[in-house]
Design a protein around this nucleic acid. Structure first.
Length: 422
RNA sequence: GGAGAGAUGGCAGAGUGGUCGAAUGCGUCUGACUCGAAAUCAGAUUUACCGGCAACGGUAACGGGGGUUCGAAUCCCUCUCUCUCCGCCA
């Protein structure tokens, strides 16, 4: 959520943000709603002030006197009026809140103009896409692929997009998770193992609800949601809290399985490991002082990039344009790994600075040097999403005999340097 | 799953219908005393929203929601959570 003061003092900034993000919002209507809400609020509060004053008088009057009953009569009149006006206020307040939530975060000035993914700027390309295996094949076409990644049985037991990982497949996944967590730990992120179900209040705070309700799996009877990313339980850790300034920046990482319904996906995007309903991911998260958030965004991106570098995978960094930037993000980088068999880039990380947008919604603050609560800036990024990294490793490193050579960084975790499909 | 107890400010803990945003203690901060410190004394010390350049003023919040009442931290209903005991269990 944006600062309501911004709407009153600098609506032109919001107007510019809406244009840059190519979002449809009737800002004039929001402004009108804000005006109406404030005037009604003032009215209701003055009525309540009157109630309190009369009540104070009554406390000093002897009960049963005519003066006392006169006050009772006045209070009864006030009560009716307050109730009526409060009802109206509540109604407009709900509308006001919805309207405020419909305003996107302001994109940072360094975010390029643009409407779609085609307008994203390639900030950097690392590694040579030609420098991969000459035997590269889409991973699902690798001989005996289904011995390590069993989609058919996953479909039988659960549904499409819930594969079994078997033998070297399972071991590779585990190795990557361990590798990612260890690297994050060395980069200064404290490891957390969070709940993988969250309640509605948490999902609302990080923006999954109410808009993207259909994206999450929901439990029957308990109103809990399977996390679509560790960002949700991680960010909500400090919800409604005020941190000591000295604690900033707080850096945490977490491995969780992630659950996404992703209704409506189809085609090559969902082949093999490209897109799953359940996948493993290590998430990196920072709560930082507002003055540091853009420095920290670069650090975060660097932490995610280093993983790909150590795995020897060619990748590129996209700076998202206004139109492709998420609703809540001020600036975002996507890391895409080269998938040599499919000859395409696969997104394996998304590193974002939310500035105070998420913190306002989740009420995460710190006490500044003046002793006043101030919103922290939140950042998060994947470090990394496992299945697509697996896909890239399998495709880029496929050897003539059908086995896959692993990068040196993984060997201590995997125990061998080759993934065997036989 | 069964039985009981409870939820108040940073913490502890009073308050069972009216001037209570809330005693007191601890903690923290400021000042005095001191060469300095401790001790002592004095004062300050929640958050959100609205109005205001500001000083400041107003409103709300005693776990959440609803109700009774002229008036609710206090009474009633309901939900959530915590604790104790019993049962069950990786």
């Amino acid at each position: 959520m944006l600062d309501p003061k911004l709407l009153r003092e600098s609506p032109e900034l919001i107007r510019a943000a809406i244009a840059k993000k190519h979002i449809n919002v009737d800002l004039d209507a929001v402004q009108q709603l804000d005006e109406r809400w404030r005037s009604l609020l003032t009215h209701v509060e003055s009525l309540r002030a009157r109630q309190k004053a009369v009540n104070g008088d009554m406390a000093q009057l002897p009960k049963g006197t005519p003066e006392f009953f006169a006050k009772v009569a006045e209070m009864k009149t006030l009560k009716v009026e307050v109730k009526e006006q409060e009802g109206a206020l509540k109604e407009i307040e709900t509308a006001w809140q919805d309207a405020m939530l419909s305003l996107p975060n302001l994109p940072h000035e360094s975010v390029p103009e643009g409407k779609t993914g085609d307008d994203n700027v390639v900030a950097e390309t690392h590694g040579d896409v030609k420098d991969v295996s000459p035997h590269a094949t889409p991973h699902w076409e690798i001989k005996n692929f289904d011995k390590l990644f069993d989609f058919a049985r996953g479909s039988k037991v659960t549904g499409a997009g819930f594969p079994y990982y078997i033998g070297d497949g399972a071991k590779l996944v585990r190795s990557l998770i361990y590798f990612f967590l260890d690297e994050a730990g060395q980069a200064g992120y404290t490891e957390v193992s969070p709940p993988i179900f969250v309640n509605a209040a948490s999902a609302i705070a990080t923006g999954q609800l109410p808009d993207k309700e259909g994206q999450m799996y929901e439990t029957v009877g308990d109103q809990l949601y399977a996390v679509p990313t560790a960002e949700v339980p991680l960010t909500n850790f400090y919800r409604d809290e005020i941190l000591p300034e000295a604690d900033l920046p707080v850096q945490r990482c977490a491995y969780t399985p992630c659950f996404r319904r992703e209704a409506g996906s189809y085609g090559k995007d969902v082949r093999g490991l490209n897109r799953l309903h359940q996948f493993d991911k290590v998430e990196l998260l920072k709560w930082v002082h507002p003055s540091q958030s853009y420095t920290e965004l670069e650090n975060l991106r660097g932490d995610a990039e280093r993983l790909l570098q150590k795995l020897g995978l060619p990748y590129r960094v996209l700076l998202m344009c206004g139109g492709d930037l998420g609703f809540a993000q001020a600036k975002k980088y996507d890391l895409e790994v080269w998938s040599a068999g499919q000859e395409r880039w696969l997104e394996v990380s998304s590193c974002s600075n939310f500035e105070g947008y998420q913190a306002r919604r989740a009420k995460i603050r710190f006490r500044n040097s003046d002793g006043k609560p101030q919103l922290v800036h939140t950042l998060n990024g994947s470090g990394l999403a496992v299945p697509r990294v697996v896909a890239a490793l399998l495709e880029n490193n496929l050897q003539e005999d059908g086995s896959v050579k692993l990068p040196a960084a993984l060997v201590p975790y995997f125990g061998r340097d080759t993934v065997s499909f036989s």
